[in-house]
Design a protein around this nucleic acid. Structure first.
Length: 651
DNA sequence: ATTCTGGAAATTTTT
DNA sequence: TTTCCAGAAT
């Protein structure tokens, strides 16, 4: 007891020791939130004797979940978290759905089963494109991406396809409604869920089947939701349903750090928590332990420009430290060179390590020039985000094999690999077989197996199709065995690496290396989960985020978007590209509330810095190779000039 | 069936 | 600047 509360300030203690009933913790940037949360979990287990398996703690990333578990274990030992659910919304819902999704399958046995696959953004965009084509719609006029965005937003609001279609007011919405219906049908046929389904279907089950809900309400007696300001309506509904019975719901967040509106995050969830849970206790953590007061005050000044926000007084006892440095570069290359030389200088003169330093930017496209220049300067760096490992073509191809082996109904994956590498089964054949499959109401893979029955199928080679089916079938016979052997067999017997070797380009070499990395990822998985199955592996891979793999152990400078920086801190921070049109981004400039979101994003960036903060912008920046004159970001101008010291070239 | 070609489009942020 | 795609050539 004593040691759990030791070193906490009064409001932190209050948050930790709060007993039953709803609790809202308003945790400003750097206010020791993570510490308070882990202490609360430890307190519940040790002091109030709550069984770990009755606790559900939701974090924003897998990385945060792991950290939280580690920290509780450091306090109380590994037994304390055994059976405790500490994970993301998506991971928790997948776990629930594996057990419960068959409730949604109709009595003819059609629809989902517990071995569903999870489609990433690319997969689901492809499926939407298929739907558009099937409905004879022009994919130029109705961009799959735009349609997907609207469907995704609907799902985040728990609006199902029929409801959506019945409430349309524009022609585009009408089209989207039709696509939405077909898309859901196809997902069910493929036994596949997209990211939004994971939450929405879990809520659907709880609302449709009260006895299922009751079971889960009885399982979890205590809830902890981190980053509550970035939850969407579906997540809110999920939490409300589960916590309804015992009301032991603690949520933590900071309205000033809400930055995921584009993903459906609804800042009202946190602003109106008191309304949703009237007897909620509210605790505010306002002392910042992270940043110098110069950095903190500058950030406070910026965020003050947002209207309609709850005022708060975040303060720091840390001395004012160095000023904030501002460098106005000629262009993006000059900007990167300045940052690289400053990194070198800081490391040499102040004895800091590369790992103490991070560079943030608004868009992933900005990272390229940093990679180039850092390479020239021999500065080790780690890039977070961009093209993710598991989204690279060669990795997705290999995973598609594994997915078809696991779930033959997965048409997107089956079509992806049937002619990769080339086996002489071309577009015409694929289209014909696909049409046949649709007509017969069977999966694409099933249709391949019966290719000889397809009428008028003289045009394609039954022999080649049969040898592909044989390949998959013989691989499937290994599915229950060793995962590493299976993956190795997929790589060898698909002929994929052979194809790349024959290409012989520099690029192909990189792809072969990545496939090697996939093998070691499988191996790591085997070590971490000795009983893990193919299903488990594919699920893990689907829900992984870039930030999850960020290891501080390597001594490199971190490069990432400001979004990815949420929840992190670094002694030295550079924020690049502070220009109108970039940060705030063009796409947000027409809407006052979106500008406010950009400002919150800027606030998140500023408050990551502990001791030194550099802001940079460029006069000229090229997009698609075309140079543009840029103006300084309004956010720069919102920082009082006495906090800022301009840096000039060569000084 | 596959490869080649030129013209158009593309970049916000992501579980 | 790079990437994507449709249509032509092989």
């Amino acid at each position: 007891m004593m040691d759990i509360l030791k070193g906490l300030n009064d409001p932190q203690k209050e948050a930790v020791t709060h007993g039953e009933g709803p609790l809202l913790i308003l945790a400003g940037a750097g206010s020791g939130k993570t510490r308070a949360l882990t202490s609360r979990l430890a307190y519940l287990v040790k002091q109030r004797k709550i069984k770990p398996n009755q606790i559900l703690a939701i974090t924003f990333t897998n990385k945060a979940a792991k950290e939280m578990r580690d920290r509780v274990e450091t306090m109380l030992g590994p037994e304390a978290t055994k059976g405790m659910w500490i994970m993301t919304f998506h991971a928790a819902c997948v776990r629930i759905l594996r057990m419960e999704i068959e409730n949604l399958t109709n009595n003819q046995g059609r629809g989902y089963n517990g071995r569903f696959v999870i489609y990433d953004e690319n997969d689901s965009e492809r499926l939407i494109k298929d739907c558009l084509l099937e409905l004879n719609l022009d994919t130029k006029r109705y961009a799959p991406r735009a349609v997907k965005y609207v469907i995704s937003a609907a799902k985040n609001e728990l609006i199902d396809a029929d409801t959506f279609a019945s409430r349309t007011s524009t022609y585009f919405e009408e089209i989207t409604g039709e696509v939405y219906k077909l898309y859901q049908e196809k997902l069910a046929q493929n036994n596949a869920l997209d990211f939004d389904d994971i939450i929405m279907l879990a809520v659907n089950i709880f609302e449709l089947f009260p006895q299922v809900l009751l079971k889960w309400q009885e399982k979890f007696k205590y809830f902890l939701i981190d980053e509550y300001q970035d939850t969407n309506h579906a997540q809110f509904r999920l939490v409300s349903l589960l916590a309804k019975r015992y009301q032991n719901l603690a949520v933590v967040g900071d309205p000033d750090q809400s930055i995921y509106k584009f993903r459906g995050a609804d800042i009202r969830n946190i602003l109106e928590f008191e309304r949703d849970f009237p007897d909620a206790k509210i605790v505010s953590l306002e002392q910042n332990y992270r940043s110098t007061s110069t950095i903190l005050e500058a950030a406070n000044e910026v965020i003050k420009h947002n209207r309609g926000r709850k005022k708060k007084n975040l303060w720091s006892e840390i001395e004012s430290g160095e000023p904030i440095y501002l460098y106005q570069a000629e262009n993006e290359r000059d900007e990167a060179i300045f940052i690289a030389s400053e990194v070198k200088r800081v490391v040499e003169e102040t004895g800091r390590n590369n790992r103490d330093i991070a560079v943030f930017y608004r868009t992933n496209a900005q990272s390229r020039i940093f990679e180039e220049v850092f390479m020239n300067f021999d500065i080790p760096y780690m890039l977070v985000g961009g093209v993710r490992f598991y989204e690279r073509m060669e990795i997705k191809d290999m995973l598609a094999y594994l997915r078809v082996i696991q779930n033959p109904s997965d048409n997107i994956s089956a079509k992806r690999i049937v002619n990769t590498p080339r086996r002489g089964i071309g577009k015409t054949s694929i289209d014909r077989i696909s049409a046949y499959a649709n007509m017969m109401g069977v999966s694409f893979y099933e249709a391949l197996k019966n290719a000889k029955d397809i009428p008028g199928g003289g045009g394609f080679s039954l022999e080649r199709i049969a040898s592909f089916v044989d390949l998959i079938e013989s691989l499937r016979s290994m599915a229950q065995g060793d995962l590493l052997e299976l993956t190795q067999a997929v790589i060898d017997r698909s002929g994929y690496v052979r194809m790349l070797e024959k290409e012989g380009t520099y690029e192909a070499e990189g792809r072969i290396e990545n496939i090697g990395e996939l093998l070691s990822a499988v191996n790591d998985f085997k070590t971490a989960y000795p009983d893990g199955t193919l299903d488990d592996f594919l699920e893990k891979v689907a829900l992984i985020a870039d930030i999850d793999s960020l290891e501080v152990s390597e001594n490199s400078v971190t490069l990432m978007t400001v979004h990815n920086a949420k929840g992190l801190e670094f002694p030295v921070v550079f924020i690049a590209g502070l220009e109108e049109g970039l940060f705030p981004h063009n796409r947000s400039m027409s809407d006052a509330s979106e500008i406010e979101e950009e400002r919150r994003l800027c606030y998140v960036g500023l408050t990551r810095a502990k001791e030194q903060l550099y802001l940079t912008c460029a006069w000229v920046r090229s997009t698609y190779g075309a140079p543009n004159y840029m103006m300084q970001s309004r956010f720069l101008k919102e920082i009082p000039s006495d906090f800022i010291e301009p840096v000039h070239p060569g000084s």
